[in-house]
Computed example of a mutant assay.
Amino acid sequence: MARQHKKAQVVKSKEPLAHTYSIIARDPVAGEMAVGVQSHWFSAGTAVPWAEAGVGVVATQSFVNKSFGVRGLALLKEGKSPEEALDILLADDEGREVRQVALLDAQGRVAAHTGSQCIRYAGHLTGKQFSVQANMMLHPKVWQAMAKAFETSAGKPLAERVLLAMEAAEKEGGDIRGKQSAALVVVPDKAGSQPWNDKTIDLRVDDHAHPLEELARLLKIYRAYEHMNNGDEAMEQGQMAEAVAEYSKAQAMYPQNQEMKYWHAITLANNGNVNGALKLLKEVYRKDKKWRDLTSRLPEVGMLMLPEKELVRVLALE
């Protein structure tokens, strides 16, 4: 009973109960760093993952001390190693034995802590440029399964490898309470001149019956939009064949998305391929005629530059 009383003294009611599994990792080739998390707790993505381009990533969980995220990154930015930063974070935390936290820096060094009072099954495993950690798991093999999945997926993009590790955790039983939320954050190895763009991937599922499946769906959509952006760039450079190939990849990955098809069509029209644009626009207009109304508004802001005759064809399309 004394132990329970002590825990009550150090755990504040406002601290999220993010009993969960997570992974922090770095891609040794690209240098990008990631945090992935899944929990049976609402919006774990607002509490567990912390990341800063060129600095590192942190996962803070169990009875979450959110300050570990901000302070951990600051310590890494000062030049502290993950181990040094971890020691500092834990030194003045009365709740250290109910905490679970892991840090990774831009060099790929890692450090992790699982407090002795984290609810079993709880533990962590650090490897080459990654760490996996879990608490309140159904079985004690969850974090080992995560590590194996990550290590055997070398060569794939980092985000997909992190997702595979979390899926492996779920296959081992995951959180004893079930599942509710998930998140995935990826940052590059170097900070850019526009820090607001430094999170290359920032996906969250706050409340869902199957959060990892939903996270995988969002990641696939993200990849589809990457192809759209590549297509836009190719179009701007006059590389029509490459642009069409990229747009086709995007639409194949996300065929139900009409907006991708629409802006593909508008880009084709602006580059002189009106017949190609009409084919796509016809499909879009059939789904919802409001897209034609939008098309009529584009010329006035310079987003659709067509001769009057061609513009009439585009707007008269049924």
Score class of each variant (00 low, 15 high):
residue 253 M to H: 01
residue 253 M to Y: 02
residue 254 Y to Q: 14
residue 256 Q to I: 09
residue 256 Q to A: 13
residue 258 Q to D: 13
residue 258 Q to A: 14
residue 258 Q to T: 12
residue 259 E to Y: 11
residue 260 M to S: 09
residue 260 M to Y: 07
residue 262 Y to T: 03
residue 263 W to K: 11
residue 264 H to C: 13
residue 265 A to S: 06
residue 265 A to F: 03
residue 268 L to A: 00
residue 268 L to E: 06
residue 268 L to P: 04
residue 268 L to T: 04
residue 269 A to R: 02
residue 270 N to H: 04
residue 273 N to A: 12
residue 274 V to P: 02
residue 275 N to D: 15
residue 275 N to R: 07
residue 276 G to S: 06
residue 277 A to G: 05
residue 277 A to E: 01
residue 277 A to L: 05
residue 278 L to M: 06
residue 279 K to E: 13
residue 281 L to W: 01
residue 281 L to N: 04
residue 284 V to K: 05
residue 284 V to D: 10
residue 284 V to I: 12
residue 284 V to R: 02
residue 285 Y to K: 12
residue 285 Y to C: 07
residue 287 K to I: 10
residue 287 K to C: 11
residue 287 K to W: 07
residue 290 K to W: 12
residue 290 K to R: 14
residue 291 W to S: 07
residue 291 W to P: 06
residue 294 L to T: 14
residue 294 L to W: 11
residue 294 L to F: 11
residue 294 L to I: 10
residue 295 T to M: 05
residue 295 T to I: 01
residue 297 R to P: 00
residue 297 R to T: 15
residue 298 L to R: 01
residue 299 P to A: 09
residue 299 P to V: 06
residue 299 P to T: 06
residue 299 P to K: 08
residue 300 E to I: 09
residue 302 G to N: 03
residue 304 L to K: 02
residue 305 M to V: 13
residue 306 L to D: 06
residue 308 E to D: 13
residue 308 E to G: 01
residue 308 E to C: 01
residue 308 E to N: 01
residue 309 K to F: 06
residue 309 K to R: 14
residue 309 K to A: 15
